[in-house]
């Protein structure tokens, strides 16, 4: 449903993506795996329309969406959970969720659903986002995205720096979204996490999609990970 077609992206004069492609279907989790600086975050930002494309295109349900202004993407059904969370730091938990709801025009039910996934947020609705713990901040970043009622969700290292219990909670929510028919693009560094949730894996290397494999293939050929991550 979401198709990224040979995109080329640069920051000013430094080109970072050199014809990267990927695709993801409804109810599927696609993981992006690659070294630091390979261009994963850049890919997600480009899909969101936050960076201009020099070449290639992005389409959603066979309609081209690249070239639309970034603020139109939420209404198209794409939500973004960025690396480092990037909450609206001085706003309360309630207000951050409110902004997610505004993106979709969704109401009370969606808000209740998001809070039921992360009950700890309900206790802290009035707290400023910047005063939440790292784990709570990540929950809020997810809740904000869920309130935007996405058909495609882009998650950039949502478990970075979290302890195992928090990690598994986030992972369960991701799987629930997949089961609800959401297309998930997940940037993830931990191979065990990838093996647990992913359907397919796209290896990103030097700004191109070096190889895309089903997760079953990865299980049979674990050396692929070493080849692209070089651990």
């Amino acid at each position: 449903m979401l198709r990224v077609n040979q995109i080329e992206v640069a920051y000013d004069r430094v080109q970072v993506l050199f014809g990267l492609s990927l695709s993801v279907e409804r109810g599927e989790i696609l993981c992006l795996l690659g070294r630091n600086g390979a261009g994963k975050t850049t890919t997600l930002k480009s899909i969101m329309g936050l960076l201009p494309l020099r070449g290639g295109s992005v389409s959603f349900d066979d309609k081209t969406i690249s070239g639309l202004p970034a603020h139109k993407m939420a209404a198209k059904g794409i939500a973004y959970v960025p690396q480092g969370r990037r909450l609206f730091s001085e706003l309360s938990v309630r207000q951050n969720i409110e902004i997610g709801l505004m993106a979709s025009g969704a109401g009370h039910e969606t808000r209740e659903y998001a809070l039921s996934l992360f009950p700890r947020l309900r206790e802290r609705l009035k707290q400023r986002a910047e005063t939440l713990s790292g784990g709570e901040q990540q929950m809020l970043a997810m809740a904000r995205a869920i309130c935007a009622r996405p058909q495609v969700i882009l998650l950039d290292e949502p478990t970075e720096g979290l302890q195992p219990s928090m990690t598994s909670m986030i992972r369960e929510v991701i799987i629930e979204m997949k089961n609800n028919g959401v297309a998930v693009v997940l940037v993830e560094q931990h191979v065990d996490a990838i093996l647990a949730v992913a359907d397919r894996v796209t290896f990103v290397e030097h700004g191109v999609d070096a190889e895309t494999v089903a997760v079953s293939v990865l299980k049979e050929r674990p050396e692929l990970v070493n080849a692209y991550l070089g651990v």
Binding site: M48, G49, M73, A74, R86, S104, R144
Partner: peptide, 12 residues
């Protein structure tokens, strides 16, 4: 607070 994220959440 965050112009880019505001855009990502539909704010013109």
């Amino acid at each position: 607070l965050d112009q880019e994220m505001a855009q990502a959440y539909g704010i013109a």
